[in-house]
Design a binder for these strands. Sequence first.
DNA 1: ACACCTCTTTCACATACTAT
DNA 2: ATAGTATGTGAAAGAGGTGT
Length: 331
Amino acid sequence: ADLDVIRLELEEFIPHVKNISDISIRKMAGRDLARFRKFKKQGIAVKFGRFTQKENKQIQKNIEEFLSVTGIESAEKLLFSHRYPEEKRTIQRLKTKHQFCEKLSEGIPRPWRLIYYRARKIYDPNNYKGKYSEEEKQKLLRYQATHGNDWKKISEMMARSNQSLARKYSQIKSAINSGPWSKEEVQKLLHAVEKVMKKRIEETETKFIPSSETSSKHLLIEREKLYQNLPWAEIETQVGTRQWRQCKQKWLTILRTKMNKGKKVFRGKEGLQMKINLIKRLYELEVEDANDINWTEVCSAIGDFPSAYVQAKFYKLKVSCVPLWRRKTFS
DNA sequence: ACACCTCTTTCACATACTAT
DNA sequence: ATAGTATGTGAAAGAGGTGT
């Protein structure tokens, strides 16, 4: 009952709170709710999605301040104290004494945990290591065979982040097909997508309409549900011969072709107009940071696509037409 | 109860290559 | 030049821990 109250209060800040498990809710209840209220008083909404430049800078500032207050030497010691067994206890005490959590999340309207993740990513020397070499891949396969999915252990042995290793392993663990899709593969993919889509509809139906008389045959599906947040791991196992990323990309291509009735909308004169519309729309948004773009909105304004398709288009446009784009900010 | 941590799944950004 | 495909990697957000 208590949890329901908290859930209700959180809903104001996190619209999708319904889908979050009790365990996560309980964790947000303590500190975050109070922080969210404080931000609300200042008229600041809770943020999601990728961190903006500004937020990243704020994290760095918060870390530096904390280091200077406590006298801890480096951000790595602060955020990865288990790598320094002798100093671990001292660091921990300093953290509690000077309210590390509060200080780290200062000025950033997000759940504490997510800010903490972000900070660890920024300051992990095992992050940003670039491409895996052939030897590294072999090593990874070997280590996984002996240690299982103990990524932390493997991480210490290979000087790569846990996440990077976990994902890389799932990429190289088994052989898969590549190149154009065969007819059977496409059929399998379509079947798999249909299946998960139906399952999903059944779930929402039983949730909102308990009476079972809604088994009418027209399946109306919201546009975004066709491509957002599909269970790709499940689809991968059903297709069998392709990785989930290949499945996802193929599905997106099929979907886009259907949505545009086979027309190649970015070709020729019309294509040029499409690009102009896209740029205009982005300009009108007046957002400061590229991470603040609402792609769903942009998409619906210029045509009918899965948002990832337009995002990819914009990327290509940017890279091919804007000199020195890497050094430029979005605004 | 709370501070802190790990693993998994999915999405985003970036780039390369080939066929048309 | 564009579309399709493949794939490198960083990132977000979820579930579910441990230790004090």
